[in-house]
Nucleic acid binder design. Structure first.
Lengths: 207, 207
DNA sequence: GGGCCATCTAGACGACGTAAAGATATGCGG
DNA sequence: CCGCATATCTTTACGTCGTCTAGATGGCCC
Protein backbone atom coordinates (compact mmCIF):
# COMPACT_ATOMS: atom_id res chain seq x y z
CA UNK A 1 0.00 0.00 0.00
CA UNK A 2 1.72 3.10 -1.22
CA UNK A 3 1.73 5.71 1.41
CA UNK A 4 1.87 9.27 0.24
CA UNK A 5 2.47 11.53 3.14
CA UNK A 6 3.56 14.95 2.44
CA UNK A 7 4.89 16.71 5.41
CA UNK A 8 3.24 19.93 6.40
CA UNK A 9 4.36 23.01 4.59
CA UNK A 10 5.89 24.51 7.67
CA UNK A 11 8.70 22.03 7.59
CA UNK A 12 11.80 23.63 6.04
CA UNK A 13 12.69 21.58 3.02
CA UNK A 14 16.19 22.96 2.63
CA UNK A 15 17.48 21.07 5.60
CA UNK A 16 16.50 17.69 4.15
CA UNK A 17 15.86 16.53 7.66
CA UNK A 18 13.65 13.68 6.67
CA UNK A 19 16.22 12.29 4.26
CA UNK A 20 18.60 12.01 7.15
CA UNK A 21 18.77 8.52 8.54
CA UNK A 22 19.01 9.87 12.02
CA UNK A 23 15.60 10.05 13.50
CA UNK A 24 14.84 13.65 14.33
CA UNK A 25 13.43 14.44 17.71
CA UNK A 26 10.33 15.76 16.09
CA UNK A 27 8.65 13.41 13.71
CA UNK A 28 7.16 16.06 11.52
CA UNK A 29 3.83 14.46 10.90
CA UNK A 30 3.30 12.00 13.66
CA UNK A 31 -0.45 12.38 13.79
CA UNK A 32 -0.89 11.45 10.15
CA UNK A 33 1.61 8.62 10.41
CA UNK A 34 -0.16 7.12 13.43
CA UNK A 35 -3.51 7.27 11.70
CA UNK A 36 -2.12 5.55 8.62
CA UNK A 37 -0.52 2.86 10.70
CA UNK A 38 -3.75 2.40 12.64
CA UNK A 39 -5.64 1.88 9.39
CA UNK A 40 -3.15 -0.77 8.38
CA UNK A 41 -3.46 -2.62 11.66
CA UNK A 42 -7.24 -2.48 11.64
CA UNK A 43 -7.27 -3.75 8.08
CA UNK A 44 -5.20 -6.74 9.04
CA UNK A 45 -6.55 -7.63 12.44
CA UNK A 46 -9.55 -5.47 13.26
CA UNK A 47 -9.93 -2.53 15.62
CA UNK A 48 -9.50 -4.75 18.64
CA UNK A 49 -5.89 -5.28 17.66
CA UNK A 50 -5.00 -1.61 17.97
CA UNK A 51 -2.28 -1.02 20.55
CA UNK A 52 -0.98 2.47 21.09
CA UNK A 53 2.45 1.17 22.02
CA UNK A 54 2.53 -0.91 18.88
CA UNK A 55 1.65 2.03 16.66
CA UNK A 56 4.34 4.09 18.32
CA UNK A 57 6.84 1.31 17.75
CA UNK A 58 5.93 1.01 14.07
CA UNK A 59 6.32 4.72 13.53
CA UNK A 60 9.49 4.86 15.54
CA UNK A 61 8.56 7.09 18.42
CA UNK A 62 8.28 6.55 22.13
CA UNK A 63 5.30 4.66 23.45
CA UNK A 64 3.76 7.72 25.03
CA UNK A 65 3.98 9.94 21.99
CA UNK A 66 0.51 9.10 20.61
CA UNK A 67 -1.11 10.44 23.76
CA UNK A 68 -0.05 13.93 22.88
CA UNK A 69 -1.97 13.91 19.61
CA UNK A 70 -5.03 11.89 20.55
CA UNK A 71 -5.25 11.98 24.30
CA UNK A 72 -5.94 8.30 24.58
CA UNK A 73 -6.92 5.27 22.57
CA UNK A 74 -10.52 6.37 22.18
CA UNK A 75 -9.21 9.66 20.89
CA UNK A 76 -7.31 7.94 18.13
CA UNK A 77 -10.29 5.84 17.14
CA UNK A 78 -12.46 8.94 17.22
CA UNK A 79 -10.13 10.50 14.68
CA UNK A 80 -10.32 7.37 12.54
CA UNK A 81 -14.12 7.40 12.63
CA UNK A 82 -14.27 11.07 11.77
CA UNK A 83 -11.95 10.70 8.83
CA UNK A 84 -13.99 7.68 7.78
CA UNK A 85 -17.24 9.63 7.73
CA UNK A 86 -15.64 12.37 5.66
CA UNK A 87 -14.30 9.91 3.11
CA UNK A 88 -17.66 8.19 3.13
CA UNK A 89 -19.54 11.39 2.45
CA UNK A 90 -17.16 12.26 -0.37
CA UNK A 91 -17.56 8.84 -1.96
CA UNK A 92 -21.36 8.98 -1.82
CA UNK A 93 -21.46 12.48 -3.17
CA UNK A 94 -19.17 11.66 -6.07
CA UNK A 95 -21.13 8.59 -7.01
CA UNK A 96 -24.51 10.27 -6.97
CA UNK A 97 -23.30 13.28 -8.89
CA UNK A 98 -21.75 11.02 -11.47
CA UNK A 99 -24.59 8.58 -12.02
CA UNK A 100 -27.66 10.19 -10.50
CA UNK A 101 -28.83 6.68 -9.74
CA UNK A 102 -30.26 5.76 -6.39
CA UNK A 103 -29.35 2.15 -6.81
CA UNK A 104 -25.76 3.00 -7.64
CA UNK A 105 -25.68 5.00 -4.44
CA UNK A 106 -26.40 1.78 -2.61
CA UNK A 107 -23.71 -0.02 -4.55
CA UNK A 108 -21.29 2.75 -3.62
CA UNK A 109 -22.21 2.22 0.02
CA UNK A 110 -21.19 -1.41 -0.17
CA UNK A 111 -18.10 -0.58 -2.18
CA UNK A 112 -16.95 1.88 0.43
CA UNK A 113 -17.41 -0.67 3.19
CA UNK A 114 -15.19 -3.11 1.35
CA UNK A 115 -12.58 -0.76 -0.07
CA UNK A 116 -12.26 1.21 3.14
CA UNK A 117 -13.02 -1.61 5.45
CA UNK A 118 -10.86 -0.34 8.34
CA UNK A 119 -12.76 2.93 8.45
CA UNK A 120 -16.11 1.23 8.08
CA UNK A 121 -15.40 -1.19 10.88
CA UNK A 122 -14.71 1.65 13.27
CA UNK A 123 -17.44 4.02 12.10
CA UNK A 124 -20.29 1.74 13.04
CA UNK A 125 -18.93 0.71 16.39
CA UNK A 126 -19.63 3.73 18.60
CA UNK A 127 -18.45 1.94 21.71
CA UNK A 128 -14.94 2.24 20.36
CA UNK A 129 -14.77 5.99 20.17
CA UNK A 130 -16.06 9.26 21.59
CA UNK A 131 -19.48 9.40 20.04
CA UNK A 132 -20.28 12.87 21.30
CA UNK A 133 -17.26 14.44 19.65
CA UNK A 134 -18.55 17.51 17.77
CA UNK A 135 -16.28 17.16 14.74
CA UNK A 136 -17.38 13.58 14.38
CA UNK A 137 -21.05 14.43 14.75
CA UNK A 138 -20.75 16.92 11.94
CA UNK A 139 -18.97 14.49 9.66
CA UNK A 140 -21.64 11.90 10.32
CA UNK A 141 -24.47 14.32 9.66
CA UNK A 142 -22.88 15.21 6.36
CA UNK A 143 -22.87 11.55 5.33
CA UNK A 144 -26.44 10.97 6.51
CA UNK A 145 -27.70 13.89 4.46
CA UNK A 146 -26.22 12.35 1.35
CA UNK A 147 -28.23 9.22 1.94
CA UNK A 148 -31.57 10.92 2.40
CA UNK A 149 -31.63 13.86 0.06
CA UNK A 150 -31.42 11.79 -3.15
CA UNK A 151 -34.36 9.80 -1.87
CA UNK A 152 -36.37 12.92 -1.16
CA UNK A 153 -35.78 14.12 -4.69
CA UNK A 154 -36.88 10.76 -5.99
CA UNK A 155 -40.18 10.82 -4.18
CA UNK A 156 -41.17 13.89 -6.18
CA UNK A 157 -44.41 15.30 -4.91
CA UNK A 158 -45.92 11.94 -4.14
CA UNK A 159 -47.36 12.25 -0.64
CA UNK A 160 -47.97 8.52 -0.25
CA UNK A 161 -44.27 7.89 -0.57
CA UNK A 162 -42.80 7.53 2.87
CA UNK A 163 -39.35 8.94 2.31
CA UNK A 164 -38.14 8.22 5.78
CA UNK A 165 -39.12 4.57 5.85
CA UNK A 166 -38.04 3.91 2.29
CA UNK A 167 -34.69 5.43 3.14
CA UNK A 168 -34.27 3.31 6.22
CA UNK A 169 -35.20 0.22 4.25
CA UNK A 170 -32.63 0.93 1.56
CA UNK A 171 -30.03 1.92 4.10
CA UNK A 172 -30.64 -1.22 6.14
CA UNK A 173 -30.37 -3.38 3.06
CA UNK A 174 -27.02 -2.10 1.93
CA UNK A 175 -25.68 -1.81 5.44
CA UNK A 176 -26.68 -5.35 6.26
CA UNK A 177 -25.25 -6.62 3.01
CA UNK A 178 -21.97 -4.86 3.62
CA UNK A 179 -21.77 -6.05 7.22
CA UNK A 180 -22.58 -9.65 6.40
CA UNK A 181 -20.09 -9.62 3.56
CA UNK A 182 -17.34 -8.32 5.80
CA UNK A 183 -18.14 -10.98 8.37
CA UNK A 184 -17.90 -13.66 5.75
CA UNK A 185 -21.47 -14.58 6.61
CA UNK A 186 -22.89 -14.59 3.08
CA UNK A 187 -23.36 -17.88 1.25
CA UNK A 188 -20.26 -18.60 -0.80
CA UNK A 189 -22.34 -19.37 -3.90
CA UNK A 190 -22.74 -15.64 -4.40
CA UNK A 191 -19.08 -15.26 -5.27
CA UNK A 192 -16.70 -12.78 -3.75
CA UNK A 193 -17.40 -9.62 -5.70
CA UNK A 194 -19.43 -7.48 -3.34
CA UNK A 195 -20.32 -4.91 -5.97
CA UNK A 196 -21.78 -7.50 -8.25
CA UNK A 197 -23.67 -9.06 -5.36
CA UNK A 198 -25.11 -5.69 -4.44
CA UNK A 199 -26.30 -5.13 -7.99
CA UNK A 200 -27.85 -8.55 -8.29
CA UNK A 201 -29.88 -8.32 -5.12
CA UNK A 202 -33.59 -7.89 -5.81
CA UNK A 203 -35.34 -4.76 -4.60
CA UNK A 204 -38.42 -6.44 -3.27
CA UNK A 205 -39.34 -9.33 -1.04
CA UNK A 206 -42.08 -11.86 -0.65
CA UNK A 207 -44.82 -10.96 1.83
CA UNK B 1 -21.37 -5.69 46.08
CA UNK B 2 -19.21 -7.24 48.69
CA UNK B 3 -19.10 -10.94 48.28
CA UNK B 4 -17.18 -12.10 51.29
CA UNK B 5 -16.57 -15.77 51.20
CA UNK B 6 -13.97 -17.47 53.16
CA UNK B 7 -11.67 -20.10 52.02
CA UNK B 8 -10.91 -23.67 52.71
CA UNK B 9 -9.32 -24.42 56.02
CA UNK B 10 -12.45 -24.63 58.08
CA UNK B 11 -14.73 -26.85 56.14
CA UNK B 12 -17.81 -27.38 58.26
CA UNK B 13 -20.25 -30.23 58.15
CA UNK B 14 -20.14 -31.91 54.82
CA UNK B 15 -23.86 -32.02 54.17
CA UNK B 16 -24.87 -28.42 54.62
CA UNK B 17 -22.18 -27.14 52.38
CA UNK B 18 -24.43 -25.50 49.82
CA UNK B 19 -26.64 -23.86 52.38
CA UNK B 20 -23.59 -22.66 54.22
CA UNK B 21 -22.57 -19.13 53.49
CA UNK B 22 -18.98 -20.18 53.54
CA UNK B 23 -17.70 -20.40 50.03
CA UNK B 24 -16.85 -23.95 49.05
CA UNK B 25 -13.66 -24.69 47.25
CA UNK B 26 -15.59 -25.98 44.29
CA UNK B 27 -18.09 -23.56 42.89
CA UNK B 28 -20.57 -26.07 41.60
CA UNK B 29 -21.20 -24.71 38.16
CA UNK B 30 -18.66 -22.07 37.57
CA UNK B 31 -18.95 -22.34 33.83
CA UNK B 32 -22.61 -21.32 33.78
CA UNK B 33 -22.04 -18.59 36.34
CA UNK B 34 -19.22 -17.09 34.29
CA UNK B 35 -21.31 -17.14 31.13
CA UNK B 36 -24.20 -15.43 32.89
CA UNK B 37 -21.93 -12.78 34.28
CA UNK B 38 -20.33 -12.28 30.88
CA UNK B 39 -23.74 -11.69 29.34
CA UNK B 40 -24.45 -9.07 31.99
CA UNK B 41 -21.20 -7.26 31.36
CA UNK B 42 -21.64 -7.32 27.59
CA UNK B 43 -25.16 -6.01 27.96
CA UNK B 44 -23.94 -3.08 29.98
CA UNK B 45 -20.68 -2.20 28.27
CA UNK B 46 -20.22 -4.32 25.18
CA UNK B 47 -17.95 -7.27 24.49
CA UNK B 48 -14.87 -5.08 24.67
CA UNK B 49 -15.47 -4.62 28.36
CA UNK B 50 -15.11 -8.32 29.14
CA UNK B 51 -12.27 -8.99 31.55
CA UNK B 52 -11.64 -12.52 32.74
CA UNK B 53 -10.32 -11.30 36.06
CA UNK B 54 -13.41 -9.18 36.52
CA UNK B 55 -15.75 -12.06 35.82
CA UNK B 56 -13.83 -14.21 38.28
CA UNK B 57 -14.09 -11.47 40.88
CA UNK B 58 -17.84 -11.13 40.36
CA UNK B 59 -18.41 -14.81 40.76
CA UNK B 60 -16.05 -15.02 43.69
CA UNK B 61 -13.34 -17.30 42.41
CA UNK B 62 -9.67 -16.82 41.78
CA UNK B 63 -8.57 -14.87 38.74
CA UNK B 64 -7.25 -17.93 36.96
CA UNK B 65 -10.32 -20.10 37.45
CA UNK B 66 -12.03 -19.17 34.15
CA UNK B 67 -9.09 -20.52 32.20
CA UNK B 68 -9.91 -24.03 33.26
CA UNK B 69 -13.36 -23.91 31.69
CA UNK B 70 -12.72 -21.84 28.60
CA UNK B 71 -9.00 -21.98 28.00
CA UNK B 72 -8.75 -18.30 27.35
CA UNK B 73 -10.81 -15.21 26.65
CA UNK B 74 -11.59 -16.24 23.09
CA UNK B 75 -12.78 -19.54 24.46
CA UNK B 76 -15.31 -17.81 26.66
CA UNK B 77 -16.58 -15.65 23.83
CA UNK B 78 -16.76 -18.71 21.61
CA UNK B 79 -19.06 -20.28 24.16
CA UNK B 80 -21.16 -17.12 24.25
CA UNK B 81 -21.47 -17.10 20.47
CA UNK B 82 -22.39 -20.75 20.34
CA UNK B 83 -25.08 -20.38 22.96
CA UNK B 84 -26.29 -17.33 21.08
CA UNK B 85 -26.69 -19.22 17.82
CA UNK B 86 -28.61 -21.96 19.58
CA UNK B 87 -30.99 -19.49 21.20
CA UNK B 88 -31.29 -17.72 17.89
CA UNK B 89 -32.21 -20.88 16.03
CA UNK B 90 -34.77 -21.76 18.67
CA UNK B 91 -36.35 -18.31 18.49
CA UNK B 92 -36.60 -18.40 14.70
CA UNK B 93 -38.00 -21.90 14.68
CA UNK B 94 -40.64 -21.07 17.26
CA UNK B 95 -41.73 -17.96 15.44
CA UNK B 96 -42.05 -19.59 12.05
CA UNK B 97 -43.88 -22.61 13.41
CA UNK B 98 -46.25 -20.33 15.24
CA UNK B 99 -47.06 -17.85 12.49
CA UNK B 100 -45.84 -19.43 9.27
CA UNK B 101 -45.18 -15.91 8.07
CA UNK B 102 -41.97 -15.01 6.32
CA UNK B 103 -42.26 -11.41 7.31
CA UNK B 104 -42.74 -12.29 10.97
CA UNK B 105 -39.58 -14.33 10.71
CA UNK B 106 -37.79 -11.12 9.86
CA UNK B 107 -39.44 -9.34 12.74
CA UNK B 108 -38.31 -12.15 15.02
CA UNK B 109 -34.78 -11.65 13.75
CA UNK B 110 -34.81 -8.04 14.84
CA UNK B 111 -36.52 -8.87 18.10
CA UNK B 112 -33.83 -11.40 18.95
CA UNK B 113 -31.11 -8.87 18.24
CA UNK B 114 -32.67 -6.44 20.67
CA UNK B 115 -33.85 -8.81 23.37
CA UNK B 116 -30.65 -10.82 23.36
CA UNK B 117 -28.37 -8.02 22.41
CA UNK B 118 -25.31 -9.36 24.27
CA UNK B 119 -25.43 -12.60 22.31
CA UNK B 120 -26.12 -10.85 19.04
CA UNK B 121 -23.23 -8.48 19.51
CA UNK B 122 -20.82 -11.34 19.90
CA UNK B 123 -22.30 -13.67 17.26
CA UNK B 124 -21.62 -11.34 14.38
CA UNK B 125 -18.13 -10.37 15.40
CA UNK B 126 -16.06 -13.39 14.43
CA UNK B 127 -12.82 -11.66 15.30
CA UNK B 128 -13.80 -12.01 18.95
CA UNK B 129 -14.01 -15.76 19.06
CA UNK B 130 -12.77 -19.01 17.58
CA UNK B 131 -14.67 -19.08 14.33
CA UNK B 132 -13.53 -22.55 13.35
CA UNK B 133 -14.89 -24.15 16.50
CA UNK B 134 -16.95 -27.18 15.36
CA UNK B 135 -19.71 -26.82 17.94
CA UNK B 136 -20.15 -23.23 16.94
CA UNK B 137 -20.15 -24.03 13.25
CA UNK B 138 -22.94 -26.49 13.80
CA UNK B 139 -25.01 -24.08 15.84
CA UNK B 140 -24.58 -21.46 13.14
CA UNK B 141 -25.56 -23.82 10.37
CA UNK B 142 -28.70 -24.69 12.26
CA UNK B 143 -29.68 -21.03 12.43
CA UNK B 144 -28.85 -20.41 8.78
CA UNK B 145 -31.05 -23.29 7.68
CA UNK B 146 -33.99 -21.75 9.48
CA UNK B 147 -33.56 -18.59 7.46
CA UNK B 148 -33.44 -20.24 4.07
CA UNK B 149 -35.81 -23.17 4.19
CA UNK B 150 -38.95 -21.08 4.73
CA UNK B 151 -37.96 -19.07 1.72
CA UNK B 152 -37.48 -22.15 -0.39
CA UNK B 153 -40.95 -23.30 0.51
CA UNK B 154 -42.30 -19.91 -0.42
CA UNK B 155 -40.81 -19.96 -3.89
CA UNK B 156 -42.95 -22.96 -4.73
CA UNK B 157 -42.02 -24.36 -8.09
CA UNK B 158 -41.38 -20.98 -9.65
CA UNK B 159 -38.03 -21.32 -11.41
CA UNK B 160 -37.64 -17.60 -12.00
CA UNK B 161 -37.61 -17.02 -8.27
CA UNK B 162 -34.06 -16.71 -7.11
CA UNK B 163 -34.30 -18.17 -3.64
CA UNK B 164 -30.71 -17.51 -2.76
CA UNK B 165 -30.70 -13.86 -3.70
CA UNK B 166 -34.11 -13.17 -2.26
CA UNK B 167 -32.98 -14.74 0.97
CA UNK B 168 -29.83 -12.67 1.10
CA UNK B 169 -31.85 -9.55 0.42
CA UNK B 170 -34.28 -10.25 3.24
CA UNK B 171 -31.50 -11.32 5.56
CA UNK B 172 -29.48 -8.19 4.78
CA UNK B 173 -32.50 -5.99 5.38
CA UNK B 174 -33.30 -7.31 8.83
CA UNK B 175 -29.67 -7.66 9.80
CA UNK B 176 -28.91 -4.11 8.76
CA UNK B 177 -31.98 -2.82 10.52
CA UNK B 178 -31.07 -4.62 13.72
CA UNK B 179 -27.45 -3.48 13.56
CA UNK B 180 -28.30 0.13 12.88
CA UNK B 181 -30.89 0.11 15.64
CA UNK B 182 -28.40 -1.26 18.14
CA UNK B 183 -25.89 1.39 17.11
CA UNK B 184 -28.45 4.10 17.65
CA UNK B 185 -27.92 5.05 14.02
CA UNK B 186 -31.58 5.11 12.96
CA UNK B 187 -33.40 8.43 12.70
CA UNK B 188 -35.12 9.15 16.01
CA UNK B 189 -38.41 9.99 14.27
CA UNK B 190 -39.00 6.26 13.87
CA UNK B 191 -39.49 5.83 17.58
CA UNK B 192 -37.79 3.31 19.79
CA UNK B 193 -39.84 0.20 19.24
CA UNK B 194 -37.71 -1.95 16.96
CA UNK B 195 -40.46 -4.49 16.29
CA UNK B 196 -42.83 -1.84 15.10
CA UNK B 197 -40.13 -0.29 12.96
CA UNK B 198 -39.39 -3.67 11.39
CA UNK B 199 -43.04 -4.18 10.54
CA UNK B 200 -43.46 -0.72 9.07
CA UNK B 201 -40.50 -0.97 6.73
CA UNK B 202 -41.55 -1.34 3.09
CA UNK B 203 -40.53 -4.44 1.20
CA UNK B 204 -39.52 -2.75 -2.01
CA UNK B 205 -37.37 0.14 -3.13
CA UNK B 206 -37.21 2.66 -5.91
CA UNK B 207 -34.98 1.77 -8.87
C1' DG C 1 -11.90 -45.51 52.75
C1' DG C 2 -8.32 -44.69 49.49
C1' DG C 3 -6.82 -42.81 45.38
C1' DC C 4 -7.77 -40.51 40.94
C1' DC C 5 -8.65 -36.49 38.56
C1' DA C 6 -11.46 -32.52 37.63
C1' DT C 7 -11.60 -28.26 39.79
C1' DC C 8 -9.88 -24.29 41.85
C1' DT C 9 -5.89 -21.22 44.19
C1' DA C 10 -1.55 -18.71 44.32
C1' DG C 11 2.16 -16.45 42.37
C1' DA C 12 4.80 -14.77 38.55
C1' DC C 13 5.67 -12.59 34.02
C1' DG C 14 5.36 -9.57 30.16
C1' DA C 15 2.36 -6.29 27.65
C1' DC C 16 -0.67 -2.73 27.82
C1' DG C 17 -2.88 2.20 28.80
C1' DT C 18 -2.05 6.22 30.93
C1' DA C 19 -0.18 9.85 34.01
C1' DA C 20 3.72 12.98 35.35
C1' DA C 21 7.93 15.18 34.68
C1' DG C 22 11.83 16.10 31.97
C1' DA C 23 14.19 16.87 27.30
C1' DT C 24 14.43 19.06 22.73
C1' DA C 25 13.39 21.52 18.72
C1' DT C 26 10.56 25.20 16.31
C1' DG C 27 8.90 29.51 15.38
C1' DC C 28 8.16 34.15 16.90
C1' DG C 29 9.02 38.70 18.68
C1' DG C 30 12.69 41.67 19.65
C1' DC D 1 20.79 37.30 15.19
C1' DC D 2 19.10 36.03 19.83
C1' DG D 3 16.36 34.54 23.65
C1' DC D 4 12.18 32.52 24.95
C1' DA D 5 7.48 30.43 24.92
C1' DT D 6 5.50 26.45 23.42
C1' DA D 7 4.46 22.34 20.88
C1' DT D 8 6.40 18.00 20.44
C1' DC D 9 8.54 13.92 22.01
C1' DT D 10 11.08 10.84 25.83
C1' DT D 11 11.56 8.64 30.25
C1' DT D 12 9.96 6.71 34.21
C1' DA D 13 6.44 4.78 36.92
C1' DC D 14 2.07 2.54 38.35
C1' DG D 15 -1.88 -0.43 38.13
C1' DT D 16 -4.47 -3.86 35.38
C1' DC D 17 -4.83 -7.37 32.28
C1' DG D 18 -4.25 -12.31 30.05
C1' DT D 19 -1.92 -16.32 30.61
C1' DC D 20 1.45 -19.78 32.37
C1' DT D 21 2.94 -22.93 36.09
C1' DA D 22 2.83 -25.44 40.27
C1' DG D 23 0.24 -26.72 44.04
C1' DA D 24 -4.04 -27.30 47.02
C1' DT D 25 -8.71 -29.34 47.47
C1' DG D 26 -12.46 -32.38 47.39
C1' DG D 27 -16.17 -35.14 44.68
C1' DC D 28 -16.59 -39.64 43.08
C1' DC D 29 -15.86 -44.31 41.80
C1' DC D 30 -14.00 -48.72 42.84
Amino acid sequence: MARIWKYSGSVPAERERQADRQRPYHHGNLRRALLDEAIDVIGEAGPGAIRLRDLARRVGVSHAAPAHHFGDKRGLLTAVAEEGYRLFAAALRDEYERTGSFRELGVAYVRFAVEHRPYFEVMFRPDLYRNEDPELAEARKEAAALLYTPLGRLSGGNPSFDTLRAGVAAWSLVHGLATLYLNGALPPELGDDPEQIARSIPGHFPP
